[in-house]
Simulated assay, not measured.
Amino acid sequence: MSSVHSSPTSASACSPVPPADPPPEVVARLRAAGCVFAEDEARLLVATARTPDDLAAMVGRRVAGLPLEHVLGWAEFHGLRVAVDPGVFVPRRRTEFLVDRAAALAPPGAVVVDLCCGSGALGAALAAELDGAELYAADIDPAAVRCARRNVPAGARVYEGDLYAPLPAALRGRVDILLANVPYVPTEEVGLLPPEARIHEARVALDGGEDGLDVLRRVTAGAPGWLAAGGSLLVETSERQAAGAARTFAGSGLVPRVATSRELYATVVIGTRP
């Protein structure tokens, strides 16, 4: 994570966490609250706070259970410092694997769409990897849309609405890379998530319906009409959902394959339009 001294206004490259020992009283408060990486979190809070009063308030919010990224106002993702506002889904490190797979597939000057974009982290990260990418993003959550507009590069467009509905019709048949970090937690398992996610992130970004694949099915059904020939849809799932997701891709006319990263505990289903 970065060591900047203020919340970001757009995604930017990260710098190392400062090595100085954090105040022991801050570490003690965080450790007492159950923060496993209390020293690291304390360093980040100290580096981000503008004043001692600001630091005290930030520590108080963290001790009260807010996600560290919401307290800091940013998250590290794929080498970028991404703004993350309160209530907005925090990008997970495992999703960097999805970005890597997308970068490997993208042609020069790719047209990229980031659906269910949340903070816009995926689209911003992929655009940073590609030369001349044309980026569009969309999310149904107004708070996420406001956040994403701060993170995507100049010239990118972020729309508010349900999946494909707000996208310009001119994109139909032109999309080379369609990213969709859809919610995939089964409804009955949302209550089992850590409180940081369950309480402080929008439910619409977590709940994937009875089997966790409801939104994935809707995205997949619409994908062939938006993808260019040879274009690919990439979706993150759990390992146990991957086979069902791949069948859904095939049923929509996409050629599916599953990619996994043991290091990041990540599973990505890729479907290519013939």
Score class of each variant (00 low, 15 high):
T248E: 15
L216V: 13
H78I: 02
A138G: 12
P52M: 05
H70M: 01
G34R: 05
G225A: 12
T51H: 13
A223V: 04
A223P: 08
E129F: 03
G120P: 06
S6V: 13
M1K: 00
R31L: 03
A38K: 07
M1C: 01
A246I: 06
V175Y: 07
A57E: 15
W74M: 10
A205L: 11
V113R: 10
P256V: 08
E134N: 09
E239F: 09
L213R: 08
R217L: 09
D139L: 02
A148Y: 10
S12E: 15
L80V: 09
R150T: 13
R217I: 00
W226P: 12
L45I: 00
V71I: 03
Y184I: 06
V63G: 04
C35P: 01
L45E: 00
Y159H: 15
S261D: 12
V84L: 04
A32C: 05
D53T: 13
L206H: 04
G253C: 02
P274T: 13
I140M: 07
S261V: 01
F37K: 00
Y184G: 05
A20Q: 15
E160V: 00
L254I: 00
S252I: 01
S10A: 12
A197R: 10
D131K: 14
D141G: 00
P194I: 04
A128W: 01
L130R: 01
T9F: 10
V158Q: 06
A32G: 10
P86M: 02
A127I: 06
A49G: 14
E263P: 02
T51C: 11
P8T: 12
P274R: 14
A49I: 06
P22C: 01
Y164A: 05
G253F: 05
D141A: 07
D53N: 09
L30M: 03
E160Q: 15
F249P: 01
E196P: 08
T267H: 04
R198C: 00
